[in-house]
Design a protein around this nucleic acid. Sequence first.
DNA 1: CATTCATATGAACAGCTGTTCAATCATTCA
DNA 2: TGAATGATTGAACAGCTGTTCATATGAATG
Lengths: 130, 130
Amino acid sequence: MSESTRLRNLIEDEVGSCCDADVEARLDRLSELVTHVPSDYDADLAAMKALGNDTRYQVVRLLTAADELCVCEITPLVDVSESAVSHALSDLTDAGLVTRRKEGTWRYYQSTALAERLVSALDAERGDDE
Amino acid sequence: MSESTRLRNLIEDEVGSCCDADVEARLDRLSELVTHVPSDYDADLAAMKALGNDTRYQVVRLLTAADELCVCEITPLVDVSESAVSHALSDLTDAGLVTRRKEGTWRYYQSTALAERLVSALDAERGDDE
DNA sequence: CATTCATATGAACAGCTGTTCAATCATTCA
DNA sequence: TGAATGATTGAACAGCTGTTCATATGAATG
């Protein structure tokens, strides 16, 4: 079965009848929707992937709670190796969720505005439904 | 090297000197940060994982742009099989990003408030940096 | 009640991810 | 300059993910 046949059936069910023009009109409305998908959403996807991991999520939470943290302050707070924390911070930096500041041999990390907006969006959920 | 040794070195570098009490105080501040990580963030993680996939991201974008869409309207707009769309919608429902409404054999989907907040958080990024 | 249609589900499998270990880099300081 | 320290990187590999194909479900209809 073709997609437009299914669409025609849908319109018939919804409206009671369906001519070719109705199918055309619906297809137009649908293709207009596609324009609302950003043309380049790689960065969005990268940010979501980055936050969708236990370690990286925890690190972002810690950094949004603190002004700034040194790697050696983050490491004892999460239950993975120092190397895993470093990988996590590197991934988060690439995803635009944290920024890095060097000071001697120490590296300080901060969360970005994007990270903070996302965390807020998640937190607004609690105690609110729909 | 122990973690608290590294922390002591950090404080010495920052402040110029460091006694046991300083290390204690810093450890207290750090453990306070952990309380800002939600005790149960599985739902957050699920939402991020769900949005961190090409197909599911596109579907959420389409649903936030439209009031409501039938499966047969979504399928022609994304470049995967009908089955993949169904899996995507199922995953998104589990993640709390979309809701489902039955009407005869048709299934209509809508984005949730959480999905809309997350999309807004991503969109605010464009044209704004830090 | 058999059929058709819209959608969902399960199995399977290629490809991706996240962790650790080992090695390396970069900075400081004796 | 070379040893020490903080952090990063790369390889490796177990485990997870996302897609498709085949099949099932459930509602409508003849």
